[in-house]
Design a protein around this nucleic acid. Structure first.
Lengths: 114, 114
DNA sequence: CTGCATCCGCATCGATACTG
DNA sequence: CAGTATCGATGCGGATGCAG
């Protein structure tokens, strides 16, 4: 790896934008996160509804990505004390603020793929 | 993996949006692609300028990601027949159309990280 | 100056089986 | 119903050295 040049003119604002993009992509960039988030835009959903509406996702990956997004404050996990158990997921306000981004990601992809 | 239910009511439009998002994220989601694209928004840059303006990137990764984006039609590679060699990179029109997306990714990240 | 080739560690993800 | 545990494959990306 190259040595860092401590006296160079690397644009600090540029690095700040880099970090911002990295943070966003790390937050929503997981293999199944976009699909999950897009569905939750429509409102609260049960675990099984999510699982059944996302083709090819395994339960392992679904749970892992849900947990991460919960930790990142994007979604709320609501457990009902019932038998049989019921768990619902919903977007937080932070999660909801991603809506325009998800929409533009989707639109650009639909328009530009072959 | 769960069996695909061929008679279920998986929303085809939802899947289309999924694919759109996947395409976009696969296209710009590489480890260094956002940083490269953001810099090229400012105009043509030489290989060494890119390398020196992106902290911690290795030449291997820089070249790999440039090649992928060239293949995806996001950037043009311009080789000048000179000694010593000179190579410049610039956004294509397709690449330029990502500008608002990159901007919103950066802004959301800056605003929402702790 | 602008790369490419090779090796390899590490995280990610899939498959499968099991549980409160 | 809503998960968890374990194992193994795969692939990204880093380090290093070489080349046109």
């Amino acid at each position: 790896m190259r040595k860092e040049n401590s006296t160079n003119t690397i644009n600090k604002q540029q690095m700040d934008k880099d970090c911002g993009m990295s943070y966003t992509l790390n937050t929503i960039g997981g293999r199944w996160k976009p699909a999950i988030l897009y569905r939750l835009i429509g409102g609260k959903m049960r675990y099984s509804e999510l699982r059944d509406s996302i083709p090819n996702v395994t339960e392992r990956m679904l749970v892992l990505q849900l947990r991460e997004m919960e930790k990142d404050g994007l979604i709320n996990r609501i457990v009902y004390a019932e038998v049989p158990p019921r768990v619902e997921y919903e977007l937080t306000e932070k999660g909801n603020s991603l809506k325009p981004i998800l929409k533009s990601l989707s639109e650009w992809g639909v328009k530009n793929r072959d």
